[in-house]
Structures are given as structure tokens and as C-alpha cells.
Nucleic acid binder design. Structure first.
Lengths: 326, 326
DNA sequence: ACAGGGGTTGAAAGCGTTTGCAGCCAGCCC
DNA sequence: GGGCTGGCTGCAAACGCTTTCAACCCCTGT
């Protein structure tokens, strides 16, 4: 049931040439307002849908919006993908998604590959160096998610406020010494959260012990959990929920009560967090909204304005945190 | 650094016309083998990449492969998406993914929308009626995942064998009465698993109690867990892991020991399953391979051969199952 | 030797859109 | 009133590819 109306049909219906029709629909100011409206009405009446392939052929620019992310299996990025995809679809466009398996080289290859198809990219947590990202931004419109590069547009959750909220919450419960189980050293998010930790300590009287850098998942969680116990902290804040999950698993293994002996706070608030036993206290990052916002920035006629947009986050308090054992 | 070589350049380099060059690269049998090789070498030497927009313009068929799935946030589908996306990329193509939010109407809209861009579709667990699916298959090449429609190609995990393995495992542990917490009534997978249950009971001396149909997640898990306890079963098999997660959470809430008092088995083996406490025994369905296989079927020059391909599944035994309390 | 034919190749016509350029018509200034 | 400017509009040329159709060559059968 693909629509059969061509631009030529619209032009005929509006009694103008295809050139004018094209300009009218593109919103060119050079065409008279009356003509423009007439063409637009004709297009609407005929249910005209532009042929993207033809447009792309002449402009050389793909119409799709591409999302490049490190790992679809990570629920956080899946959330971003949902947001991107929904917003793109609302625009009548299609979203190309590419997973890089957390590999910087794959990332570069993937970006090159989607280049001809999409002139607008959402890059989520790209691993490539700043220069490479900027190079990509030369050829296409780019918005970053969870990464900041001078001169480019970016969107992220409020990492500093997230860790602050977590710390305030733990402090209120009575914790005075908490561990931070960090993420990969190359992660911009981890760096941002660490900075937040430092800033928060000036306001919250709490000692933060750096437990190290871990890969999210069970292996990392295992190490982190053991280190947390050894560090004699009463609570641990994890870089993200996947790591927190691993920690929770290890603690259960070792028979350590959560939150009885150790409170655990995650970050991202992935959907399963609330399904755990105990449900995980976590900093809710609006993943889909990050995606939506990124697309929004890409939608304008111009390159998105550089700068970092920070979306608010919120601590979801659940049962993995409680007062420290007296 | 988009490549600048055009088909005309290749043709010139190979001393043939563009028509012949086009045919040679398309692998048309009508062109002489020697010529074909010469053109191919020239193309390779120049690093020629066909302009997909131009091709699409003339053929009217999009080159991308689209994946339509109910919910990216469901780790199982995220896995399928990974598989699809990786295989598509290996082919030098791009994958368009669209999430329908589990809504049949959105599904139809989405399919219509990706139509012009992609002439090959992977439909994962489509909600639409058989006829509608067949209608889509008229206009595009379609492979289904976790759904069977007469006359179409489809890929699925071996549902029957999965439940059989689960039942055999539980039986071996000594369970004789287990509950089945089903999925949505409209789900093809749930129906397939239920059929498997019936078939397995002929071989395994075990009584299966139908606990009902539940929506995956915490709400459904809550109800299912309570019903399982009331039904006086010693183990419960869940339609999928998300439901199992909800069940586990509810059981923990009520202080019911797992696997002490009740064993729990999931289905799909999503990545978090092994991170739970206790780690969840689950039927491993190779989600990414389902995606990969689906794409493979789509890659041939012709419509994929109708019929259901069944991929083997495997029970991952973890600590959520044990002997029933004596 | 010649007609016929299979096997290859090339010329050219689009596919639907954007866009540079030229043209038209008013209106305006002098 | 004539020449110009400037606002709109239309013509036609791309964009890079596939595919139809005709042409060509050389071989075969008679």
C-alpha cells in the first residue's frame, strides 16, 4: 500500500512546476506564501510522501538517523535506543542502529558504514578519541550521549547530582564511610561520576573509598563486592546497575545480608533493578529521554548547538539500602 | 572519507560499458566469465562501493534490512537485535530497528513506515494476525522470529525441547508437581511452550499445574508466585525470565526460600539471569543466533524458503533449582 | 555460402528529487 | 514612459544506478 503520489502529481494538482513544488515543501522562503500553502495542501490531499532515495541521490545525504552504541544488551542503552527510535519514527524517518560491541575499532568501521545512509548520528558513549569524534562531526551532524567533546552537542544525565543524591541518602541513613565501585577507566561517565563524588564530599560529611575500576557484570561485581567487604564500608555505590547486580550476587553468595550488613546503590536504574531481591536503590537516569533529546537536537535544520545538556536524575530508594548495622 | 569511485569509473577501468559493469557486479550469468572477473577486479582495486540510494531509486527496493520487535527493553529481543545487526553489518548493509511497544497497531504503522527503506524484514513476535503478516510478506521478504505463519519462513528456539529439558531436570531432582506460569495468551511462544509441556508429560512422570497467563514483570510475577505457593507445587517454570524475575522477587518478599522451598526455572536465559541471587536456572535460547539466522535467510536472492527453523536450546542449570524439601 | 541463432555487449531511457540559471512580470525611480 | 530591480516561477540538468532493447560477433546447420 505504498503511496504512489509523486512530486510531479502534487505540482500538477497545485498548478505549479515540480521545481516550485519542491521548494514549497522544503519551506524555501523564496516561494510566495500563497503558492506555498497551495502546494502544501495539494501534497496533504494526495498523501504525498517524498521519495527519500531520490532525495538522497541528489543531495548526497542520507535521511535516516543512526544510533551507534556500545552494547544493545546493556539495558541502559536499550533504553536510549527506545527513545531515539520512537522520536525518529514520530518524525516519519527511520532509525539505523549499530552496536559496536564496546570496541573502538568496530565503532569507527560502523560509523563509516552508516555514513552514506545517515547524515545525522547519535553517538552513545563513543570510545574513540576526541579528535576522531570531531572528525566524524565534520561530515555529519552529531549529538553525543554520555560523552562530552569540546565544540559538539551532547546530552547526559546529571551525574554529579546523581551521586550527590546517593550520598545524601546514605548519609541520612547514617552511613559515614561508603565505597565507590567504579566503571572502566576509559568511561566518560565514570569520570563524571567520580568528579561528582569529589564535589559532593564537600557538602556531605561522608568518606568515600575508591574500590577501583571494574567491568560491569558478574566478574567485576565479584571483585568489587569482596573489596567492599575488606574496605570496611557500610555501603557501596556502584558505577552502574550491572555492576551493582554483580555485587549483589556475590554478596548473596558469601551470605552477606543486604542491606543488613552492607547497603548497595546502583546507577541508571535499569528495569530489572526493581525486580531484584532486594529491589535495588538506584539513580534513575531517563535513558529514553536522553535518546529523545538527542534526536530532537538533530532535527533542526542546522548543526545542533554545541554544549552539554544535562537531564535531571532522581534517586529511586528501594530496599537495598538501610541504616548501617548498629 | 566516503569513497568517490562511481560505477562509470569501474567500467572505464575495466574497459566495458556501465551496463556490463553493472551486470558483472550483480553476478548476472549473461556476462562472460572473463569480463566479469575483470570488472570485479577493477571494482576492488578502486574500492568501489555502490551508491545504494541510486540503486534504490531505480529498483524501488530499499537495501536495508529492518527489524521490527515488540520491545527493545526486553533483553531477549535486545539479543535478537544484536544478532540481526551484526550479521547485517557484516554484509555491508545497515539495520533499521523499530520497536512497537507491544502494540499491534503501532506494529502495522511501523512496518508501513520502514517499507520504502527496507524490502527485507525480520519480524520478531509480531502481534498482528496471520493474514496481515502474509500481506506484508507480499510486498517484502519476511522472516519471522518466534512466530509461525503458514507459508512463511520462520526461526525459533526449540520451545518443546526447552520445556522438556526443564521438566526432565526438575524430575531428576525429585520434583513431581510443578507449576507453569504462562505468558500472554496472544503469545505464539507461550502456546508453543504449552504444547511442549503437554508432549513432555507423556515421557516425564510429572504433574504440571497451569498457574495461568501473566504479563512478564513484577506485577505478573507477584501473582504467579502467590499462586504457585497456593498450588502446593515444589517448583515453578516460568514463561520467560522476566516473569521468573518477578516471581523470585515476590518469593524473597514473602520470605520463601529458593530453591529450598520452591525451585524456579526461567526461559530465555537473559544475561541478568546468572547475576541474580540465586542465579536462575533457565533455558538458554540463542537470541542473537535467532537474529543471525533470520538475516541469513533474508540474504539469498530469492524469497526465503517457507518453513520453521528450530534452533537448539539448552538448559543452564544454576542455583535456583534443587531437590524439593524433603 | 548463407540464414539462423546463441552468447555478449552497449546505448539510452528512465527512477524522483533538488537546484543553478534564466525568464517573466510588476512596480519603482527618475 | 522607459529602464531596472527584485520577487517568483519554470526549464532542464544532474545524481548513480538498473534494465530494456537493439546490435554485434561468431558459430552451426544445411
Amino acid at each position: 500500500m505504498t503511496n504512489e503520489a509523486r512530486l510531479a502529481d502534487v505540482a500538477a494538482a497545485a498548478q505549479v512546476s515540480v521545481a516550485t513544488a519542491s521548494r514549497a515543501l522544503a519551506g524555501s522562503t523564496v516561494v510566495a506564501a500563497a503558492t506555498r500553502d497551495r502546494v502544501r495542501r495539494a501534497a496533504a490531499r494526495l498523501g504525498y510522501e517524498p521519495n527519500l532515495a531520490a532525495r538522497q541521490l541528489v543531495t548526497g545525504q542520507g535521511q535516516s538517523i543512526a544510533l551507534v552504541l556500545p552494547d544493545l544488551a546493556n539495558p541502559f542503552y536499550a533504553g536510549v535506543a527506545k527513545g531515539v527510535q520512537r522520536r525518529v519514527r514520530a518524525e516519519g524517518l527511520t532509525a539505523v542502529v549499530a552496536d559496536t560491541d564496546e570496541d573502538a575499532e568496530v565503532e569507527a568501521a560502523v560509523i563509516a558504514q552508516v555514513g552514506p545512509v545517515a547524515a545525522r548520528l547519535v553517538l552513545a558513549s563513543p570510545r574513540m578519541p576526541d579528535d576522531a569524534v570531531r572528525a566524524v562531526a565534520q561530515r555529519a551532524r552529531v549529538v553525543l550521549v554520555n560523552r562530552e567533546v569540546e565544540g559538539l552537542a551532547a546530552v547526559t544525565g546529571d551525574n554529579a547530582d546523581g551521586v550527590r543524591q546517593a550520598l545524601v541518602h546514605l548519609h541520612a541513613l547514617g552511613h559515614r564511610r561508603v565505597g565507590y565501585a567504579g566503571g572502566p577507566a576509559t568511561s566518560w561517565s565514570d569520570a563524571a561520576r567520580r568528579r561528582g563524588l569529589v564535589a559532593a564530599r564537600e557538602r556531605v560529611e561522608i568518606e568515600v573509598v575508591d574500590l577501583g575500576a571494574f567491568r560491569p557484570g558478574s566478574a567485576g561485581g565479584l571483585a568489587a563486592a569482596d573489596l567492599a567487604l575488606a574496605a570496611e564500608v557500610t555501603a557501596v555505590l556502584a558505577f552502574n546497575d550491572q555492576l551493582a547486580l554483580g555485587i549483589l550476587g556475590r554478596l548473596a553468595d558469601r551470605g552477606v545480608a543486604v542491606p543488613g550488613r552492607l547497603s548497595v546503590v546502583g546507577f541508571d536504574d535499569i528495569p530489572v533493578a526493581r525486580l531484584l531481591a532486594p529491589p535495588l536503590t538506584s539513580v534513575t537516569v531517563p535513558a529514553d529521554e536522553l535518546g529523545r533529546t538527542a534526536v530532537e537536537l538533530l532535527l533542526g535544520p542546522d548543526r545542533p548547538e554545541p554544549g552539554l545538556r544535562t537531564l535531571p536524575v532522581e534517586l529511586a530508594v528501594r530496599r537495598s539500602t538501610a541504616e548501617p548495622a548498629g
